Computed example of a mutant assay.
Amino acid sequence: MDFLEELNRIVDQYDESILVMRQQTEQRLPAHQHKKGQLLLVLGGIAYLQTSEKDYYIPSNHYIWIPQNFPHNLMYNAQDLHIINVYFPEAHGEEFYNNLGIYPVSRLLSEMLSFSEKWQGNFFPGDWEFEFLKTLWGLLPKENLQRFSIQLPTTDDERLNEITADLRKRISEPLTLQDIAEKFGLSVRSLTRLFQNKLHISFIQYIKMLRIIRAMELIKNTNLTVTELAYEVGYSNISAFSNTFFQLTNMRPTEFKAML
Rank of each mutant, 00 (worst) to 15 (best):
S187G: 15
Q151V: 05
Y97S: 08
A47V: 03
R107Y: 09
L210W: 03
I58Q: 05
Q24D: 10
Q178L: 13
T135H: 09
H82R: 15
M75N: 07
Q178D: 07
S114N: 14
L175E: 01
D12Q: 04
R214G: 08
R107P: 01
T135K: 14
S60K: 00
N122Q: 10
D156C: 06
L41D: 06
S106Q: 00
E131Q: 11
Q120C: 05
L145K: 04
L113P: 02
P89Y: 06
D166W: 15
F184W: 10
L175N: 00
V188A: 13
I201S: 13
Y206Q: 09
L100Y: 02
S190C: 01
H200E: 09
H92L: 13
H72G: 06
L194H: 11
L100G: 12
S187D: 08
P30V: 03
A165M: 13
N144Y: 10
T249W: 06
K257M: 06
E94K: 10
R22C: 00
P104F: 04
N61V: 08
S236M: 06
H92S: 15
L74N: 08
T192F: 01
D166S: 11
L140V: 04
I238A: 10
F130C: 03
Q27C: 10
K169Q: 15
R107I: 02
E158K: 11
E90F: 11
L136R: 02
A258P: 01
Q120R: 00
Q151D: 05
V86W: 09
H32Q: 07
G121I: 00
G185L: 09
K208W: 11
E94Y: 04
I201A: 12
E94S: 14
N77Y: 02
L136D: 00
G234E: 12
E53N: 09
E232P: 01
S236R: 14
T192R: 05
L199D: 08
F88E: 02
D2F: 09
D157A: 00
H92D: 06
L145H: 02
K118W: 10
I204S: 13
